[in-house]
């Protein structure tokens, strides 16, 4: 399977199953598009007819090079990965390596678009106790097998509303990680309201990454991100975030924005963040039910897709100006990315990755918390709902019929189970709107990577 597209001056051909990327000239691009459906003479005559200023010898040379790529297994490569789809999960069955610790099911903001219903996850307000958190870390170590890298995200709600417990849990983990031969990587997601010098010093010492919620333009951010009196939070948090990022040396953070039906032109929000001095950016489509006023519509889609293209051009332009920035979804390492076993096995939710509620219940990931039928078990007795866990374990790129003919399947690994469930009622479904956005993001990400690889940042 191949995918070919044009981006700026580049004609890009992705050979999906070999992973080879080809950057080709115009006649070769056309030859590839006809190669499998027509015979050699037809392809060459049609190409010669279109490119009258190119000699027949040269067109035959193009054809020969395409044929050579196919022969060497770098073009039109067959998909032979399906039998391997369960290998990594089978090999690591029962191993847990990452937890999303719901340290606080409460929040000091009242954002109406929050997928976690203002941090309460459709339940009662709650803070995780140190004892529950400590047991969660012990559960992670006990179930991590030979994995050395263990990841714990402090999440909510607003985790800084339970900051003392966060600090004690990190201290506990650091006290045992050497003895257990583990390496804890902590991350913190915060709305910024409670960020102060103490938080900054602690996070810079202990957090391998911090995720800072900012939606961009003041009027966009303050539309949804308000306190319980209805006041916008932009003025309060932006100076705190600027201080936070400066203290981190401008590294190991993401400004994490959400775009909605109110701002499908989210590139303007990215530009605002750049103007504020932030350079590590992640801007994500809202998770909202169809019909929700914040939900993206079909009419928004072409606007959003255009933003992704313009964003790629902006990145290359700023590269050339010596002012680079990072966009999370365009951060693709062409040569050091995940191996094929990871690419076909899915994200690991419900198997190697779980969410822990303030009272110690286990869920497949943070987006399923509060939906009782997805409860996997708890941190004392482990997973006892094996039916749900097996359903997640079998989620891979080949478990979804709609993914079979998609060129992007080895980049998304079948996509997000939560998005699939919320849009189709099945964790093996397909969130088609999200797929359209994902494919565009991958086209742009690969184009940016190709431009950088070839040293042609325009």
């Amino acid at each position: 399977m191949i995918h070919q597209y044009k981006f700026g001056e580049y004609n890009i051909v992705i050979d999906v199953c070999s992973g080879a990327l080809h950057i080709v000239d115009d006649p070769t691009y056309d030859i590839i598009s006809m190669f499998e459906a027509s015979n050699r003479d037809t392809v060459i005559s049609k190409t010669a007819e279109k490119y009258k200023d190119i000699s027949l010898d040269e067109i035959e040379e193009c054809y020969a090079q395409v044929a050579g790529l196919k022969e060497s297994g770098k073009l039109f490569t067959e998909d032979t990965f399906e039998p391997m789809a369960g290998t990594l999960k089978a090999k690591t069955s029962g191993v847990v390596k990452a937890l999303c610790l719901h340290i606080a099911h409460t929040c000091n903001l009242n954002c109406s678009y929050c997928f976690a219903s203002q941090g309460k996850y459709h339940g009662e307000r709650a803070l995780m106790s140190f004892d529950v958190g400590k047991r969660a870390l012990d559960f992670l170590i006990e179930n991590s097998g030979t994995r050395r890298n263990l990841e714990v995200d402090f999440f909510g709600g607003e985790p800084l509303m339970n900051f003392d417990v966060v600090k004690k849990l990190v201290e506990y983990a650091r006290s045992i990680e050497k003895e257990k031969n583990k390496n804890f990587r902590f991350t913190l997601t915060t709305n910024g309201v409670l960020v102060d010098k103490d938080v900054i010093d602690f996070a810079n010492r202990e957090m391998s990454n911090v995720v800072l919620s900012l939606d961009g333009r003041k009027e966009v951010h303050d539309r949804y991100r308000v306190d319980y009196s209805g006041n916008g939070s932009w003025n309060k948090i932006v100076p705190k975030f600027q201080e936070f990022v400066k203290a981190r040396g401008g590294k190991n953070y993401y400004m994490r924005g959400t775009f909605t039906h109110a701002n499908p032109d989210f590139l303007e929000d990215i530009k605002t963040m750049l103007d504020l001095g932030f350079t590590e950016l992640s801007m994500e489509p809202v998770v909202a039910a169809e019909g929700d006023p914040a939900a993206l519509t079909e009419a928004d889609k072409p606007i959003v897709l255009k933003q992704y293209e313009e964003l790629a051009r902006l990145m290359l332009k700023r590269d050339k100006e010596g002012r680079p920035f990072t966009f999370y979804h365009y951060m693709i390492d062409l040569k050091g990315g995940p191996c094929i076993y990871k690419r076909i096995s899915g994200c690991g939710s419900g198997t190697e990755y779980m969410a822990v509620t303030p009272w110690g219940d286990l869920y497949p990931c943070h987006q399923f918390v509060g939906d009782e039928k997805f409860k996997l078990g708890d941190i004392w007795k482990g997973v006892d709902n094996t039916a749900v866990q097996n359903e997640f374990a079998s989620c891979n790129v080949y478990a979804r019929e709609d993914c079979r003919d998609c060129w992007a399947k080895l980049y998304c690994s079948g996509g997000c189970a939560a998005n699939a469930y919320h849009s189709t009622g099945s964790v093996r479904g397909i969130y088609k709107y999200g797929c359209d956005l994902f494919r565009k993001r991958m086209e742009c990400a690969i184009a940016v990577a190709v431009a950088r690889e070839l040293g042609d940042a325009e």
Binding site: L21, Q65, L88, E151, F155, H329, I332, G336, C339
Partner: peptide, 27 residues
């Protein structure tokens, strides 16, 4: 040259921002 080309069960050490292609191999 009309073409420029550029990308042995897994170990699972790679990292599990937004809440797979963007990951790096950590073996």
């Amino acid at each position: 040259k009309h073409v420029k080309t550029i990308t042995k069960g897994g170990c699972g050490e790679c990292q599990t921002a937004c809440k797979i292609a963007n990951q790096a191999c950590e073996n």
